Simulated scan of single mutants.
Amino acid sequence: MASRAQIPVVDLGDWHADPYDDGARRHLPGHDHAHDDSPHDGSARRRLAHHVDQALQSTGFLLVTGHGIDPGLPGRLRAAARDFFRLPSDVKNAYAQCADRRGWTARDRVVTGRSEGTETPPDLLEVWSCAADPATPCHWPDEVPALRPLVAEYTDRMRGLADTVLEVMATALDRPVDFFTRHTTDPNWDFTVNWYPAADETGPAAPGQFRIGPHTDFGLVTLLDRQTGRGGLQVHDDEHGWQDAPYEPGAITLNIGDLMARWSGDRWRSGRHRVLPPPVDAPREELTSLVYFHACAPGTSIASLPAPVGRTPYPAVRAGDYLQEKMRAILADGGA
């Protein structure tokens, strides 16, 4: 059995409880640092930002609490999504992904490991996906009318949470609090509901086959609401190899994506991870993950921050082009 990874817990309550916008004040002309000991001097925010900075340098992952998300919302969304995934395949085919890759993705259509150059058999999952542009898939399933409003509510909450985290991260780098969020007023977000069927439905996994193969995410930050299971999330550590990700009820798992790693000049790690195959010793275990991918506007030029913050000077990339190239790589048919 794999060991359990050490992923720090970050309570955003400390950020919300200290309303003082320390990041904005420190960049005002003539700011007097001699008065930084006032009751609302931003010290709680600075401590939180330092904690986030240290965690992202070591693992690229966080467990986020104090986020204010309605605790019942993920369960309601999962229930609606399962109603859809349980429909017959010929019904779901009517909602299959169209040219913009929004809608339903059947099994054997995604090979996530290809994004990092790892060849595996197709991933053992089904996906419902939508995105900011276009704001909806080709069409939503008439058979499950609750799905669309629940996805809209959930993604709205995730977008707000992602921007809050980006403010914390900007503060961690001693940048203005809107250093990242000025590029996310029109974000290029994606949202997927990943359904991992049970082993008694998929049959035994092929050698090297996973629910999701090893990869790093592509954008700025990913917010994951997941269920714990034996065939669940693992993260990779250079020293210890693959480890089971810790689970805390109600916490959102956050990880850094490739664009943010490039932007930080590799100060922060793009956390490598995978989802284990369905366990044969728990043949009825099925899991559903809610995955929100936050990225900046497609036309944003991402250039590495210079030293001493950054450590690797990557050439600038256009965010939208980078994401499209990565997405094409993971489709089993090569993007046709």
Rank of each mutant, 00 (worst) to 15 (best):
D123G: 02
R78M: 13
A96K: 10
A316P: 06
I302N: 00
P141Q: 01
E201W: 06
L287M: 07
A251L: 04
W189C: 02
Q324L: 13
T312H: 06
K326S: 03
F179S: 07
D90N: 14
R26P: 09
A81W: 13
M158K: 01
E119S: 13
L224N: 02
A96P: 06
E126T: 06
H35T: 10
R157A: 14
A307V: 00
P246F: 15
V91T: 15
P71T: 00
G203M: 09
P121F: 13
P277G: 09
D200R: 07
R102E: 08
A81M: 13
E153P: 10
F293D: 05
V309E: 00
H27N: 07
D11E: 05
V280Y: 03
V151R: 07
S301V: 14
D11S: 02
T300N: 10
P277T: 09
L147M: 12
T118H: 08
M260V: 01
R262G: 08
P308Y: 09
T171L: 13
L166Q: 00
A319E: 05
G72Y: 07
D333Y: 14
M158F: 05
I302E: 01
R211M: 15
A81I: 13
L331M: 03
D70M: 10
A307R: 06
R148F: 04
V111D: 09
A336G: 08
T222V: 12
P187R: 00
K92L: 14
C138H: 04
T59F: 12
L323I: 02
M1D: 12
H240V: 00
Q57V: 02
R175H: 09
W15V: 01
C130V: 11
G231K: 05
G103D: 02
A261P: 06
L305K: 04
T120W: 02
K326Y: 02
S58P: 11
A94Y: 12
G160K: 07
L125K: 09
I212F: 07
P283I: 10
A131K: 10
H31P: 01
G75I: 04
R86P: 03
Q57F: 05
L323N: 00
G103H: 03
P283W: 07
R211D: 15
G60D: 09
A329E: 09
L62G: 04
P19H: 08
P249N: 10
V10F: 05
L56I: 04
A245C: 03
D156I: 04
A307Q: 07
V110I: 15
T171V: 08
A132M: 08
T184A: 14
V291W: 09
D217K: 10
L220G: 03
D18G: 03
S264K: 13
T65A: 01
P283R: 11
M260I: 02
T155A: 15
L276A: 14
L287V: 06
D237Y: 08
M169H: 02
R86K: 12
Q234A: 07
R311S: 14
H51L: 11
W242E: 03
A307D: 07
R311Y: 11
L331I: 01
